[in-house]
């Protein structure tokens, strides 16, 4: 009897695993079939107004890069504080926990927050608001990564640095960060992969634009928002463009993740 129950449970969980994988591969396969069919050179050289994706791809990258420029320095320095300056006091523990909670905060709520402080007062959606929403979203991820990676650096390295009389900030920048460089880079790569596919916080912050623009004071083109809009259009050609965009986005994200994984593995 015990053996039969054992068999049943093992078979059930294997089936669950197979079922889960079926769903997930179903998604990837339809995405590939639909995406490859719709991808051609034309969509990379034309903007949305001419049924292309060029302005959207550029727009999404620009938003994510600006988010990185804002979020990474703040997040890294905050991570450095938690690991190097706080001596693990109550405040640091509090911030660490808070940052973990913030990591799972609904992204659309961050969008509403940014709308209230940056869109409503200005009167129209703009690229800066989108970039800042993404920066807020990635901030806790960067904090966590920096914190964890600096924690892995051996204590002896710090002591060696201090022993030769270097001030602490020099020890941090010249020794500790260098030692943790690979780990931090990987973390940043994964944070980038996370925000590049975000839609919800952009919907009403940066909005969308049909045209190619680099002016962040205006509504800004974004691939994910455009996919959302195009996918629900009755025009089949536009839906196909959305599939092409979805395909590019997904494989871009997956490749970044694989690269991040490869770096970690290489290091070990």
């Amino acid at each position: 009897m015990r053996l039969i129950i054992n068999k049943i449970i093992l078979i059930l969980s294997t089936l669950a695993a197979i079922l889960g994988l079926i769903f997930l591969f179903w998604i990837l396969i339809t995405l590939t079939i639909k995406g490859v069919k719709a991808i051609n050179l034309y969509i990379f050289t034309h903007d949305l107004v001419d049924n292309g994706l060029r302005n959207l791809l550029v727009g999404q990258l620009v938003l994510a890069l600006i988010a990185i420029l804002i979020g990474v320095p703040i997040g890294m320095i905050a991570g450095i504080y938690l690991q190097e300056y706080s001596f693990n006091n109550k405040f640091a523990k509090f911030i660490r926990n808070l940052s973990d909670v913030m990591m799972s905060a609904p992204s659309i709520v961050i969008g509403t927050f940014v709308y209230a402080i940056l869109v409503n007062p200005i009167g129209h959606m703009n690229g800066w608001a989108g970039a800042i929403a993404l920066a807020i979203l990635m901030l806790p991820i960067v904090v966590r990564t920096t914190d964890d990676m600096l924690g892995l650096v051996p204590k002896e390295l710090r002591e060696a640095g201090v022993a030769i009389g270097a001030p602490k900030y020099r020890v941090i920048f010249d020794i500790i960060i260098r030692a943790a460089k690979v780990g931090i880079m990987t973390g940043l790569l994964l944070a980038f992969a996370r925000i590049i596919g975000e839609t919800a916080p952009l919907l009403f912050t940066s909005g969308n634009s049909q045209y190619f623009t680099l002016n962040l004071n205006e509504e800004f083109p974004s691939l994910t928002v455009a996919i959302y809009n195009l996918a629900t259009m009755p025009d089949k050609h536009l839906v196909d463009i959305a599939w092409a965009g979805a395909f590019i986005l997904t494989f871009f994200v997956l490749i970044i993740n694989l690269i991040g994984r490869y770096i970690v593995k290489d290091k070990k």
Binding site: G20, I227, A242
Partner: peptide, 15 residues
């Protein structure tokens, strides 16, 4: 499985 956790949620919605 871990890679699939990284797929943007909009893709799940569209599918």
């Amino acid at each position: 499985i871990e890679l699939l956790a990284a797929i943007p949620s909009i893709i799940y919605g569209m599918w």
